[in-house]
Structures are given as C-alpha cells and as structure tokens.
Design a protein around this nucleic acid. Structure first.
Lengths: 233, 233
DNA sequence: ATAAAACCATGTTATTTAGCACAAATGTAG
DNA sequence: CTACATTTGTGCTAAATAACATGGTTTTAT
C-alpha cells in the first residue's frame, strides 16, 4: 500500500525478470494491476491449503517457504531473497498451496494477480520461458535437497544448511558472518533435525573452530571444512 | 529404431500432450525429427552429469528417475509411466542432469531433440503452458516428498511408497495386486531405507494382513490401513 | 523497568534405524 | 541339470537421533 517507496515509474526496475520481456503495451497493462504489500517480521504471507491468486515478487526482506509435517515439526523447503518470485507454482499446477510462506524479517513485495500473468503468458513467449526456466531450476534444487536431507548425517545436513544460507543471502562486510539471523529452531527446520540437535551440533562446530557463534550471529571460519563435512555427509 | 510399431501417421496419438497444441505445420516439423528408441530391462537411459539433449516421452514400459547419494545409496526420486515426459528439466534449467534414469522393464520411448522443442516453444504458447503446468506439478510432488521422506518413520514411508506405486502404475485385474514388480532394493530406495528394513517392514505388513506378498508380487489387502499408517507417519 | 514468554544450552535416556553376518530361496548361464 | 550369483529373510549389535528434563539467558510486551 506504500507505493510511494516504489514509484510506478520505476516498477520495472524492481521486477526485471518479468518486466523486461514485455512490450510497451503489456507493461502498461501490468502496471495497472500490481500492488505493493508490506509484511511484518514473522508474518504469514500465505498458508498451506489456501487458494493461490498472486505472483509475489520480493522487493525487500527475506522469506521462508515451509511445510508442516507430522507431529508439529515443520520443514523449510526453500528461502526467497530480493528479486525472487514465489507463490505461483500452485496456481500453475491448479492446486491449493501445499506449502506456507512467512517473513523472516520485515518485507516488501510486489503482488500481481495470476490472471494478469496468464493474460501476458498468452501473448509473450519470453515470459513463458522465464517461468519454465525458473521452475526447472527449482525442481532440480528440490530433487537435490531430497537426497541431501534424507541421506546425510546431522553434521552434514547442518554444514549444508550453513552453506545454503551463505549462497542464498550472502555474508556481511566482514566476509564471514551470515547476513541472516535465524533462531536455532528455524535452523533445525531447515536441516531436518530437532532444535536440541541443531544447538548441539552448532556448538560442536564452534568448538572445532569451523564457525564462531555470538547469539544468532554465525561466522563461517572455515568454509572449506564446512564443504567437506557437507560432502561426506 | 523400430518405427514400424509406431507408424509416423499415428505418432500424434502417442504423444498427445505436445502434439495436440501444434499447428499442422508444426506437427510436420516435429514428425521430421522424432525418433523411437527401445531400452532393455534395467538399461540406463541417461546418467547423472550427462548433457541433456532430448525430450523423452515414454510410450511403453516403466522408468525410474533416481539419484546416487552418499555411500552408494541411491534414492528413487520419481517414476515415469506411459505417456509421461522426462529428460527435459535439466535442459530448461541449463544444467547437466542431476539425476539418472533407468528402465524398470523393457521400454519404448519417443525422443525429440530439445532444439526442436525450443523452436516450437517460440511460436506456440499452449505448448509452453503444458511444460509450465507439468513442471509446477512435479515441483509440488517433490516438495511433498521431501517432507514425507524426512519426517515419517519407516512404516509410514513404506506404506506411502506402496500407495505411490498404486497411484503411479495401478493395479492388476484383481484390483489389489500392484502392477509393478520391484526388487526389495528398489522398494528400499524408493522409501529411503535399507534393504533389510524394507524386507522386514514388508513382512510385518504381511503378518498384519495389510498386504500379501508372493515373491515380488504385492497385494494391497487393506488400503485404508495403509493410508492411515502413511498419514500418521 | 519488570514480568512473562520464548529461546538457548547441556546432560541423560529411550527409540529408531543402519550395519553386519549368515542361511535359505530364487534366478541365471553354461 | 548343475554351479554360481543374486536376492530374500532373520537375528543380533552398534550407531545415530529424538525425546525429555532442567536451568540459565535473552527478547518481548506492558
């Protein structure tokens, strides 16, 4: 609702992947229909079972896509950063959401009704190719993740999650601190383990000088070693 | 190479999902470039790390898509049946294969070079929508599977695999025998467990009269109970 | 500022699952 | 048909992980 921060004239700069392929006319059409929303920290963006209606492009902040499993345990499936799109898979598959989305931290997002996207897809193949490519990449990542989460041991899974967070959200200026601060519980849900085991394994990594922890701040001290641990499982 | 069994004139009937959206001209173009291949039982169709080049439509037989994990264990990611397409994800993502494919039983497939598909995609949006929808469905299944394989216990995972095989390949005329005969090892690889545990759990199900086993033949005797076991994990 | 709630840390125990060994059954090649 | 390889079945042991309990610490809300 705070379009002021993201003036219409510049919207294209914030959603380049779907804006660039469009013709002038298509851009005008899109510009008429998008809206800007803000989400508070920990706010739910959509829930499992809901009906998908909008393509969401994250302009600012960090989002988790997760799934409630058996016995209250939840599993983080993927994470979203700046300029990434989500919320559209279920619509294309003609299903309700099988995952939920929530904000790790305060977020701003651009929402575009899926009907509008469908209209654009009918006339613009380059846009269709964007979605085909994106879905293909995500499917590869998901397949990879299935094996990693099922076959690796705790240390391997946690090491992998730390590297995953580094790749997803990068490091701070010191080139070693993860620029996302997660609760131990979220870290556990990302790594398919209990909170206790996330805490314990994190402490072990710290005493082995592979990482350094200061509350929720995590410094990666020995990335090669993390890679090795992640690789051997 | 045995086009005889699948005469050119009828090819459209075998690959309807991508044939129907095409114009007459596009169909002619496609007909010029497809080939028919046969695969023997257990033959590898493609390997992890290879470069994807063809869209494959399975005309006859059953195929597994799997991934070698840590320590020689392999994980079956999904299975393919008649009239389903595979082999294209990696191409669209511009990656090498992250999975491998092999024939469960003797197979016949129609291969179409991905370049040809790309050409057709440029001019045909309906075809693009087919891939968007298919990839979206597969991604949902993959996400679902990640949670099922990681959070459920052995009995839940095996029950789920049996139901999964029923949905994928159906039952024989008796309405209860799975119409695919897998080795215990494949069943284990599908369910993320060791072969011993697959054997053991299968025996347990049999003594509980939930299934009946006769070699590799598996009869589902109490599907409701299987669903319940799968659900509670 | 203070109370309440959520989170972090660590030790102990219980459960689940993998790993191994070996025998029996089945399939396969010559 | 026979010999050999592979698959299946079963029991036992070891390892990995979850579950629980408790106390300290930080965050949040009022």
């Amino acid at each position: 609702m705070v379009k002021s921060d993201y003036p219409d004239a510049e919207i294209g700069a914030y959603i380049p992947d779907i804006w660039n392929p469009l013709s002038a006319q298509q851009r005008a059409f899109l510009a008429q229909h998008y809206t800007i929303h803000k989400y508070k920290k920990n706010e739910t963006i959509y829930c499992e079972g809901e009906n998908p209606s909008h393509l969401i492009c994250l302009l600012k902040g960090k989002v988790k896509i997760y799934k409630e499993g058996v016995g209250g345990r939840s599993q983080i499936i993927r994470v979203i950063k700046n300029n990434e799109y989500f919320g559209y898979r279920a619509f294309f598959a003609e299903e309700d959401f099988v995952t939920a989305a929530a904000a790790f931290e305060p977020c701003t997002a651009c929402l575009i009704p899926m009907d509008i996207i469908l209209e654009l897809l009918k006339e613009n193949n380059e846009l269709a190719m964007f979605f085909i490519k994106q879905l293909s990449k995500d499917l590869g990542i998901s397949d990879e993740r299935t094996v990693n989460l099922t076959q690796k041991h705790i240390r391997g899974r946690l090491a992998e999650s730390l590297l995953f967070l580094k790749d997803a959200y990068g490091l701070e200026e010191d080139e070693s601190t993860l620029s996302i601060y997660l609760s131990r519980e979220d870290l556990a849900n990302l790594s398919n383990m209990t909170t206790s085991n996330a805490i314990r394994t994190l402490s072990n990594f710290a005493s082995e000088k592979i990482i350094a922890i200061d509350g929720r701040k995590i410094k990666l001290m020995d990335i090669d070693k993390l890679r090795k641990i992640s690789k051997i499982g």
